[in-house]
Design a protein around this nucleic acid. Structure first.
Lengths: 240, 240
DNA sequence: CGCAGCGTTGAGTCCCTTCAATGTGCGTGG
DNA sequence: CCACGCACATTGAAGGGACTCAACGCTGCG
């Protein structure tokens, strides 16, 4: 099995990969050590500042990347400037759209981000040669699809308060739980970005956050730092 | 190449498949004639009346299906009854969620539907043995993901009028264009279903439809039968 | 300090919802 | 055949939740 083989032979893998966050992620976790070496030779670590674009909407990108650290937001913008964030991605997610060169969305660093960039052509070749890699990417695509549809429910049918709670819940589930019930985390998004993710305005986001604070569902320290004393209570807010 | 092989040997394929709408679809279009015969032996045509459920949300379905005729809606409902349609599927789309047995959404017939049902286990086995089949399903998943994200923009950032126009545009693009600019089609959805797809109420949907009618963007005959004299004008309504 | 970026808060407005009534098409049964 | 009931759709009036516009607070930085 490919997974076992690559795991068992880390000795031959590129140095840079040994301690990489994405080493056992969707892509690199299923490559043979030979493939990993090949990919490593053609890959490049890159730091991207918060707010900077990784891939532009409408552009033809000849690169894919793995997220090693930080949070990436996928955005769609309309000609008149209206904007919608359609997904958040975390390490060790894979960023890119196989089969289609021109991107229908932009990928931007929400926080400071480190990514590992590699040539599209090379990975495309590996995909066609490696059933397990295709399976893995297929699996990620389906998970993203599930998440997208779950979010459609949030966008279409939840109230502003439920929307904000849904977002906090989403972020919280990507953080380490402090105890069985309480979770602490830093928001990777500004109020404006939260609004663009929830289909709201900055002001309503702000108001709903203070509502949640006043009702005791969350505590806030320094704007972006959030404490959820009781995740069950948080889940009750989104009634699902 | 698998595609060529299966196309070239229709003589050996099951009789039922010969004239099937899904014969060259995502699944059957990439199977070898042997696999097609195998799948055909274990598959079953089924008619489903409009409004009936094909797969229930939260249930464990041991079947996949191909849509041969009609329109299927994928729905999510909340405990309190709020509902969101997250996708429409048309012949010859594949319906099912590989890798996960329990469905997080329900599939319901929007119109009268004919589907071809086959065992999950059998197709799962074929997927793992047939790279081209996995590629094909991966491709469909990514296309559905693109569509879901496009719809998130509609749900989050478009006005009621733009939402209704977006829906009509979506349906229209799945119908045969009458001339270069004009398209005629039957709505596969009731006003209530349209509302659940757009995150609106029945009444606003109705009002926006009559607005579009009065402004001349569409003409209506018999509630469900719509004429779009000029698709360019329709596209201008959704400003994208 | 002064400014810029980000977040909060308030007042007023508007778009969509809610509630309610009316209209339309269709199948059923008298 | 028409009356009746039902499901679906339209229309109107009133209300509310989110938006718009505007002011203000906080924080970091040149």
């Amino acid at each position: 099995m490919d997974v076992a083989r690559s795991k068992g032979s880390d000795a031959g893998t590129p140095v840079a990969c040994a301690s990489c966050q994405a080493r056992h992620g969707v892509v690199c976790g299923v490559l043979s050590s030979g493939q990993l070496k090949d990919l490593g030779r053609h890959s490049l670590r890159r730091k991207v500042d918060a707010g900077s674009e990784i891939v532009a909407q409408g552009s033809e990108s000849s690169f894919y990347s793995n997220i090693m650290r930080g949070v990436v937001k996928l955005c769609k913008v309309m000609p008149d400037g209206r904007q919608q964030i359609v997904d958040l991605q975390f390490a060790p997610d894979f960023v890119g759209r196989p089969f289609v060169r021109e991107s229908t969305l932009s990928a931007e660093a929400a926080t400071d981000v480190e990514i590992c960039v590699f040539p599209r052509d090379l990975l495309d070749r590996m995909i066609s040669e490696t059933p397990e890699l295709r399976r893995s990417l297929h699996d990620q695509a389906l998970k993203e699809l599930d998440a997208a549809r779950e979010w459609m429910l949030t966008l279409g049918r939840r109230t502003a308060e439920e929307k904000v709670a849904s977002l906090l819940h989403l972020i919280a589930t990507h953080a380490e739980p402090q105890t069985a019930t309480t979770t602490v985390f830093d928001l990777p998004l500004s109020r404006a970005e939260i609004a663009d993710f929830l289909g709201l305005t900055i002001e309503t986001v702000s108001r709903q956050i203070t509502r949640l604070r006043k009702s005791g569902v969350i505590r806030i320290e320094k704007f972006r730092h959030i404490i959820v004393p009781n995740m069950d209570e948080m889940e009750r807010m989104i009634s699902a």
